[in-house]
Simulated scan of single mutants.
Amino acid sequence: MANHGAAALVMVASLLVAAALADARHTDVKAPAALACNKVHGVQTAETCFSVSQGAGLTQDQFLAFNPNINCAKLFVGQWVCLDATLA
């Protein structure tokens, strides 16, 4: 019977080590680079993400990279968007 307790203790210790190793793997993840916006634009009536990016001479991918948290489906008049950014 004493062997069952020792086996359970070894299993618990193994699980704790596995959990610690799993947590350690996540610390190597790098945060996205911070951007500093150099040029902003206030959204006007009837503008979309696409029309604003086109008007600024940007691709849609560039525009979205400069505005990573934007929701293009909920763009509103007066919303500030970034048209040029550099690494902070």
Rank of each mutant, 00 (worst) to 15 (best):
K30N: 00
A34Q: 09
V12W: 05
A46D: 15
L16K: 06
A7Q: 13
L9R: 06
V12D: 00
V29T: 12
Q44M: 14
N38L: 15
A8I: 13
V40A: 08
E47D: 10
K30A: 05
G5H: 01
A33R: 09
T27K: 02
N38Q: 05
N38Y: 03
T48Q: 09
L9D: 10
A13M: 11
H26E: 05
Q44V: 10
G5F: 04
A8H: 04
G42N: 09
G42F: 08
G5M: 04
H41V: 02
A33M: 01
A34M: 01
H41Y: 15
A20I: 09
V10G: 00
V40R: 11
T27S: 07
K30L: 08
A8P: 08
H41P: 05
V10A: 13
L21C: 15
T45F: 10
A36T: 13
H26K: 08
A8D: 06
A36H: 09
D28T: 12
S14H: 02
A7D: 14
A33K: 14
L9H: 07
A24E: 07
A33L: 13
P32Y: 02
V40I: 08
Q44I: 03
R25S: 15
V29M: 04
A19L: 15
L15T: 13
A31V: 07
A22Q: 12
L15W: 10
R25I: 07
A31C: 01
Q44W: 03
R25V: 10
A13K: 05
A19P: 00
A7M: 13
V40K: 06
T27C: 01
G5V: 00
P32E: 02
A13F: 07
L35D: 05
V43K: 01
T45Y: 11
Q44Y: 03
Q44E: 12
L35K: 00
V12T: 11
L15N: 11
D28I: 01
C37I: 08
T27Q: 11
D23Q: 15
L35W: 01
V43N: 07
L21H: 05
D23S: 15
D23E: 11
A24W: 08
T45W: 11
A19Y: 11
A13P: 04
T27N: 00
A36E: 13
T45D: 05
G42R: 12
G42M: 10
G42Q: 13
K39W: 03
A19F: 14
A34S: 06
A7N: 10
A24V: 06
L15P: 05
R25Y: 09
A31Y: 00
H41S: 03
A19H: 07
A19N: 08
E47R: 06
